[in-house]
Amino acid sequence: MSTDSGYDVGKGDSVHPGKPVTVDRYTGGARINHWITATSLVLLALSGLSLFHPRLFFLSALFGGGQWVRTIHPWIGVVLFFSFLGLFLRFWKLNLWKREDGTWLARVRDVLAAHDERLPEVGKYNAGQKLVFWSMSTLIIVLIGSGIVIWNQYFAAYTTIEQQRWALLVHSIAAILAISVWITHVYAAIWVKGTIRAMVRGSVTGGWAWRYHRKWLRELVARPPTKEPTADRKRTAAE
C-alpha cells in the first residue's frame, strides 16, 4: 500500500480475524520494556517526590528511609534511562509527526468528548500519544542530565555548586512535567477502555483499533497475513 506503511506499523503488529477481531499491538519484549520503564518511573516519582516536598517525605518509608531513597533514586534513574532508551528505539519512527496529527490535535475538543468519529484516521499512535512520547523523551534526557550533576556521591566534584543549583531546579521542574505527562498517559489508558490490555496481553480488539487507530488497522489488514498462531497469541490464549 502506502510507502510509509513502515511508519505506522510496528514490528510484530498483526491482525487476527475472527469474532471479535484481535490485533497484536505490542510484542512481549515491548511490553516487558514498557513495564520496566513504568515501574522505574513510578518508583522515581515516589522517591523523588519524597525529597521534593517535606509533606511527601513519608514516601521515603516505602524505600526504607531517606538514606535509601538517596542511594536508590539515581540508580533507578539509570534503569529508567536505558529502559526508556529501549522504548525510544522501538517506537521513535512510529511517533514521527504526520499531517493528520495536526488535524487530530486541532480537534482536541472532539477527542475529549470521545467523538472519535469526527477525528481523522490515525496510525499506530495519535497526536496525543506522540506528544507524550516526545515530551517524555525530552524530559528523561533532561532528568538524567541534571540528575547526574546532582548525584552527589559520584559526581559532585565535576561541577560547580552554581551549576548544581541550576541542575536541582531543572531536575525538579522536569520531574514535575514528567509526572504530569505520566498522569495524562495513565489517565488516557484508563479512560479509553480496552487500551490497557494492549500492554497487558499485547493485543487489542479489532473494534478498538478501528475506532482509535483506523489507519494503523487498515495498513495491517493491507499487509500480507502473519503466521498463526504467534507465540504471543498462544500465551494470551492460555491466560
Binding site: 480475524p17 471479535p20 470521545a114 479489532g206 473494534g207 483499533a209 475506532r211
Partner: peptide, 28 residues
C-alpha cells in the same frame, strides 16, 4: 483527569466498531 472521567465517562469501543473491524478484516 478525574473530573473529565466523572463528566464524560469512559470512552468505549462500540459493537459497530467491532463489526467494522470484522468487515475490514473479513474483506481482506
Amino acid at each position: 483527569g478525574f473530573l473529565h472521567y466523572m463528566v464524560n465517562g469512559p470512552n468505549r469501543v462500540s459493537e459497530e466498531d467491532e463489526e467494522a473491524a470484522q468487515r475490514l478484516t473479513g474483506d481482506r
